[in-house]
């Protein structure tokens, strides 16, 4: 067989495999959207869930998902940023940094159920936070931190050494070089990483089942005092998220329209994550343009 033929066969096989993957993805997406989209309505997106009757919505769950996401990001982003800057810009290669890197590596491959159970034992039980948004946010932080740290470190890595030397050679301190030259140049790619990890966090269920809990008490959307128990902002209330809701309906849902609600919720989840991904691209590109041509 000559090499030209081999080449053709190889390329054909690769196309075939790639096509198959795309097909599977499209089929999944198509199925979820086709069965879920008809369920969507303003009522579905805003109404609270009903346990035994039909006609419940996912308003509370949707709100919980976003609130948890924001809290988890607010906790994990500064830590991840600091860790990534330290690891990439300051730390020399020695056993301490090797240990930290290995730890991050291991943490990032930890199954999220394990993170959830750890969160349950530590935050819910030991620290007495109970099933609450806060416990959930901490668990998500554990889940998110390694991924985010690595993605920020990768962003820093894309900036040439010459840029750093250029800053230093102007008489900027190390810190000024990082915060005023390197970080602005990496904002778009850091942001992309943040939004993509937001998608993962948004769809996470296993880490939340035993931390944020599986119940979604009705919220009073007129009460924004975080200390009131029915306030949406109260971080100590249990908060079932959309992903947990899907899991729960499918395993033990007893409302008559469980199937429809599960399909609708899945569609909402998928659409939200797709939006995150498109937003990541769009915002990243726009920001890069803005920053590089002031």
């Amino acid at each position: 067989m000559n090499s030209k033929k081999q080449n053709k066969i190889a390329i054909g096989a690769l196309y075939g495999i790639a096509g198959l993957v795309v097909l599977i993805l499209l089929a999944l997406l198509g199925y979820i959207l086709a069965s879920g989209l008809p369920q969507l309505s303003w009522h579905f997106l805003t109404a609270p869930a009903k346990a035994f009757l039909k006609g419940g919505g996912v308003g509370v769950q949707l709100f919980n998902s976003f609130y948890l996401l924001i809290l988890a990001m607010a906790i994990s982003f500064p830590i991840a940023l600091g860790a990534a800057i330290y690891l990439y810009e300051y730390a020399r290669d020695n056993w301490v940094t090797t240990t930290i890197r290995t730890a991050i590596e291991i943490l990032s491959s930890l199954p999220s159920v394990v993170v959830g159970l750890f969160g349950f034992l530590f935050f819910v039980v030991k620290l007495r936070l109970g099933f609450s948004i806060l416990s959930g946010a901490f668990a998500l932080t554990f889940f998110n931190l390694p991924l985010l740290t690595r993605s920020i470190e990768d962003s820093l890595r894309t900036i040439d050494l010459e840029q750093r030397e250029g800053g230093l050679a102007l008489g900027l301190s190390r810190w000024e070089t990082i915060t005023r030259v390197i970080l602005p140049a990496t904002v778009p790619s850091i942001l992309t990483g943040v939004i993509l990890s937001a998608g993962r966090v948004f769809g996470e269920a296993a880490a939340l089942i035993y931390t944020a809990g599986q119940s979604a008490p009705a919220l009073n959307f007129a009460d924004w005092n975080p200390f009131n128990i029915s306030s949406p902002l109260n971080p100590m209330r249990p908060a079932e998220t959309l992903a947990v809701h899907i899991w729960k309906i499918n395993s033990e849902g007893i409302m008559p329209d469980a199937k429809a609600i599960s399909s609708g919720s899945s569609a909402v989840l998928i659409i939200a994550i797709l939006l995150f991904n498109f937003a990541a691209r769009y915002v990243g590109k726009r920001l890069y343009k803005r920053l590089t041509s002031a």
Partner: peptide, 28 residues
């Protein structure tokens, strides 16, 4: 930091920051 303000350096590869020309010049 003070030393490098007095003794500046230009490198082999041009390394402007990814900002405007104006911002590059006044950055320091």
């Amino acid at each position: 930091v003070e030393i490098r303000k007095e003794i500046g350096m230009v490198f082999q590869q041009p390394n402007p920051f990814p900002f405007s020309i104006y911002d590059n010049v006044i950055y320091g």
